[in-house]
């Protein structure tokens, strides 16, 4: 099941990168293109292993940079940093709560591009950077907050539809069975312990 989940996540990352490059209407409407990879990383870090997080950071980062003017590999580290931190703290996170998912998606969508920008500036590149970047981060934050619960819902639905689920264990326990018969009822028996109610009852005087 694990590899299938990883395949779903990588497939979604591939389509998300292409979608961001092919459909740029958000940029014209809001002034910034919403990044779907950090919310996807939130999902991967909360629901999969470190291998999936690493694969997602490397593959999605390289795919993104191949369609962008970014230097190749610059998106890998920020994505991995976001996923790694969430993965390490995931026991403390209420991952099933949509509010927690939205907050993490928003935070990841701000931190990942900010780290990428920092890395670009450190490397000596001159990206478009100014007061307008703050507005772009706000748009990214809102987009990430919306996208994270959608990813969780989508993958939940996909797993429900495509992944085989093992039969659940019945709550019935044979050793707790109440037997009725001539020798009386067996109640509250545990691990072969037999309580014979009929015998324990005092006999009526005839």
């Amino acid at each position: 099941m694990n590899w299938l989940n990883t395949a779903f996540i990588l497939g979604a990352a591939f389509l998300a990168v292409f979608g961001q490059a092919a459909f740029g209407s958000a940029r014209f409407l809001a002034g910034a293109q919403v990044d779907l990879l950090p919310p996807l990383m939130v999902y991967a870090a909360l629901s999969s292993g470190l291998t999936t997080v690493t694969l997602l950071a490397v593959c999605a980062g390289l795919w993104f940079d191949s369609l962008s003017a970014n230097p190749l590999g610059v998106t890998v580290l920020p994505l991995f940093a976001v996923g790694w931190v969430i993965f390490l703290k995931r026991e403390l996170i209420l991952r099933d709560q949509p509010f927690a998912q939205a907050v993490l998606g928003a935070a990841a969508s701000v931190v990942a591009p900010a780290l990428t920008l920092l890395l670009l500036l450190t490397m000596g590149s001159h990206p478009l950077f100014g007061w307008g970047t703050l507005w772009q981060l706000v748009v990214l934050c809102a987009g990430g907050a919306l996208a994270a619960p959608v990813w969780f819902e989508l993958f939940g639905w996909l797993q429900h539809a495509l992944v085989h689920r093992g039969a659940t264990e019945s709550s019935f326990r044979p050793d707790r069975e109440i037997r009725r018969g001539r020798r009386g009822a067996l109640i509250g028996g545990y691990r072969g312990e037999v309580i014979d109610r009929a015998r324990s009852k005092p006999r009526r005087p005839r």
């Binding site: 490059a21 910034a32 993104f64 369609l67 962008s68 920008l117 478009l128 970047t133």
Partner: peptide
């Protein structure tokens, strides 16, 4: 034009 820049800090097309 087949693709646009996915990052917000560059302006390019393919």
């Amino acid at each position: 034009v087949v693709l646009r820049e996915p990052a917000n800090w560059w302006r390019s097309i393919q």
